[in-house]
Nucleic acid binder design. Structure first.
Lengths: 106, 106
DNA sequence: TAAATATGAAACTATATGGTTGCAAATATA
DNA sequence: TATATTTGCAACCATATAGTTTCATATTTA
């Protein structure tokens, strides 16, 4: 079973969960109130997010507070870095390359 | 069928395709040489990437060159922005919140 | 102690996903 | 023109995914 950050953020409900607990740590019950799905479904999403270390939990009595491990989000940022260099270049080297190929073929 | 940028980058083969064509536009055949899977499987990945506008194509004779629409990658960057604000804060407000809850409960 | 609350796990289901093989269409080349 | 090359699409398959309902466990509260 694949279980990485990219697979974790693929699901829109999980992205919403991440955004919610980024603002404030929450219990599964409180989280579930924000969605149409069942509490158990939210729990399954929390498990997936836990398995790739995007969130951590802290038990307080019978409640479990889930919070975002925001450092892990940097993994996505690191992957984006290689493309950031390209999109910050005003003149596209790709268009340039295609133009070159076209000329060669003629 | 869901078809957004986040779902597109969830697959490791598609992330590899993106990284390859970011450097240089490529045909499906050339791309497929970089992977274990069949050319047809690569074509299916290209279709998914096309459907969410992450790539575009240009036909030259019987060859079709696929190139990255690097602007679309910014969608991911935009989503990350909300978390970047948090991870750039040295002192975690989440730990703070949990500490507050603990005190209230005592 | 008994009841209520919060949670996770198990079993099940429908659909999505990623892969394969075979084929048809378009273009280039002999 | 006949053949080779490049490509996308259809049909099929095994597995993953996201959801449900039911149940067991732990903790709080009456």
């Amino acid at each position: 079973m694949r279980r990485d950050v990219f697979q974790a953020i693929a699901d829109p409900t999980r992205r919403a969960i991440i955004a919610l607990i980024a603002l404030q740590a929450m219990t599964p019950n409180t989280l579930a109130e924000h969605f149409e799905t069942s509490r158990q479904a939210v729990s399954k999403h929390l498990k997936i997010l836990s398995e790739c270390d995007l969130i951590s939990q802290e038990q307080l009595g019978r409640e479990i507070y889930y919070k975002l491990e925001v450092e892990k989000m940097k993994d996505i940022d690191i992957w984006l870095e290689q493309f950031r260099k390209i999109w910050e270049t005003k003149f596209s080297q790709l268009d340039d390359l295609l133009a070159t190929i076209k000329k060669q073929k003629k």
